[in-house]
């Protein structure tokens, strides 16, 4: 397949997944804020999760409910707002409409228009829960449509690869925000308010019910283990990275356990380490440091994928990526 198209389907999936994650943790935070009405600071970590804290402070100052929602949802100057993520997903989809199925295109297009309409009508601030539910569902429909209407070939695997790497990154960031609560030496006896926070964190990853079935009581170390190292929960980091590796091998045809390029080697090594990691080690090292290192390595995997498969298109004699039209319609 064309390198340019591989790049586009990879990023289309990353952007849809990113929009869904932003919707999910804003939604959870709204609920949490109703339990702690005085705690304005609770909106701060949200911006940290998307990695845009300094851009936010520069433009809005203090983190208030409405400003944070606006920033993360509709702000066209925030490249990671839901609106911009879906807009970029759609731009990517447009460059390869012939490649994806019509159903996938229509789903991305519809999601984009849904958010655009909501930003005009003010619906997101009036009934935020409905709005964020719509965004999540749009993403789920997108994933299902990809799964059911496209051949699971090379292009499909590039899409899944993008989506899963994005999801692993976001789950790790959600955890990172709470990492200060489990610094080594801190009492590991959760207060009632801690429990609320850890439950909210599970909900941010749609993991609360599944966690309950696996572990029962909400215990920080178990929550971390579930979100990092569970190999069957679809939003846990290990699950995402394992499936990413399978997609990568489906693309290259390399046997599992071997590697033929840097992306395969880096992702394989990371997976092996996580698969054999123990929570004791993670906590002893410090959760924040562990996650920092994890994110760095996932970024390397992303870069290696780009270099291995997309670079033929990207480094093309220094041409700009998009060009103005030259021929008119007759």
């Amino acid at each position: 397949m064309l390198s340019r198209v591989a790049d586009a389907i990879y990023w289309m999936n990353r952007y849809v997944e990113r929009a869904e994650n932003v919707a999910r943790f804003v939604d959870v935070n709204l609920h949490l804020a109703l339990d702690f009405p005085e705690a304005h600071s609770e909106w701060e970590p949200l911006i940290a999760t998307t990695g845009d804290a300094s851009a936010y402070r520069e433009r809005y100052g203090a983190a208030t409910r409405d400003d944070v929602i606006r920033f993360l949802t509709f702000d066209r100057d925030n490249p990671n707002s839901i609106c911009m993520c879906l807009s970029k997903a759609r731009e990517n989809a447009r460059t390869m409409r012939e490649f994806i199925s019509s159903e996938v295109w229509e789903q991305v297009n519809r999601a984009y228009w849904m958010v655009t309409e909501a930003s005009k009508s003010g619906a997101a601030l009036d009934s935020p829960h409905d709005f964020f539910t719509n965004v999540k569902q749009a993403s789920h429909l997108f994933v299902g449509t990809m799964y059911l209407t496209m051949t699971h070939n090379e292009g499909w695997h590039f899409g899944r690869l993008g989506r899963l790497l994005e999801r692993a990154d976001k789950t790790s960031r959600i955890l990172d925000v709470k990492s200060h609560m489990v610094e080594p030496g801190r009492e590991d006896v959760p207060t009632p308010s801690d429990e609320l926070h850890w439950s909210a964190l599970l909900r941010s990853a749609s993991a609360f019910e599944m966690y309950r079935k696996a572990f029962g009581n909400v215990v920080p170390a178990k929550v971390i283990e579930f979100l990092l190292l569970d190999d069957r929960f679809p939003r846990s980091v290990l699950y995402c990275l394992k499936k990413s590796e399978r997609s990568l091998h489906a693309i290259t045809g390399t046997q599992s356990g071997r590697w033929t390029n840097r992306a395969e080697r880096e992702l394989g090594r990371l997976n092996a380490e996580l698969a054999y990691a123990e929570m004791k080690e993670v906590l002893a090292r410090g959760l924040h440091r562990f996650i920092d290192d994890l994110q760095l390595r996932m970024n390397h995997v992303n870069d290696s994928i780009a270099e291995t498969f997309f670079a033929v298109a990207a480094h093309d004699e220094g041409r700009p990526r998009t060009l103005p039209p030259l021929s008119r319609a007759e």
């Binding site: 064309l2 460059t95 390869m96 012939e98 998009t322 039209p325 030259l326 021929s327 319609a329």
Partner: peptide, 25 residues
Amino acid sequence: TPGIYNSAYFEHSFLAQQMGVELVE
């Protein structure tokens, strides 16, 4: 195709898709 900013871009991708061939820039 000249790319997504061309006025007839929809048609270019549509025809490539309907024929099952690559759309290239």
